[in-house]
Design a protein around this nucleic acid. Structure first.
Lengths: 83, 83
DNA sequence: TGTCAATATACGCTTCAGAGGATAAATACC
DNA sequence: GGTATTTATCCTCTGAAGCGTATATTGACA
């Protein structure tokens, strides 16, 4: 359930997964935050230029949080989007 | 040991803590990445405009990773820098 | 296959991150 | 206190994020 994320792409994926799990669309996230639907889209697609504030706003809207920890020996199965 | 982080400030703090734990200074992170020392400084100080790519580069240099998970009921002790 | 919802892109605009480069201010250490 | 190291801040410039708005594309489903 917890998602390991080391790249913008993995972070975007984890966000999209959780959003869908909550049965929400990008527009509803836009309403919960002050972000545009286009911005949500960019984040989920892994835009590396996404700003930290933007990301934190989205996480809050999805009731998610970051945990920062030393890297684990990656079981490949847990890191799903190397490419 | 794992750090909960919900804001740019908390993320910056966790990074700084780990960097120091590893006995590194900002200049050595600059050498491991292609970032300027001034940029490392800004990230650790919690600049909300920090870009995701920048952040991931720093995490990699410190051998850290993100985990994204549903928010836990915060024990205040674990969330140390609300202000 | 046609239609509506959902997501991805586009244009123009403003703002700001991070670059190079340099220096001030703080911290540590003798 | 004096000095060296480390971290914060400043200047200018370029690139791009996110904005508003609008539209194209994709996806879901009857």
């Amino acid at each position: 359930m917890d998602q390991i994320a080391r790249t913008p792409k993995q972070i975007g994926d984890a966000i999209r997964r959780q959003r869908r799990k909550l049965g929400l669309n990008q527009t509803s996230i836009r309403d919960k935050t002050k972000l545009r639907q286009a911005t949500i889209s960019a984040v989920e697609r892994g835009a590396p230029g996404t700003q930290l504030g933007t990301l934190c706003d989205i996480l809050a809207a999805l009731d998610l949080e970051f945990v920062i920890r030393p890297r684990t020996k990656a079981k490949p199965a847990e890191i799903e989007d190397i490419f």
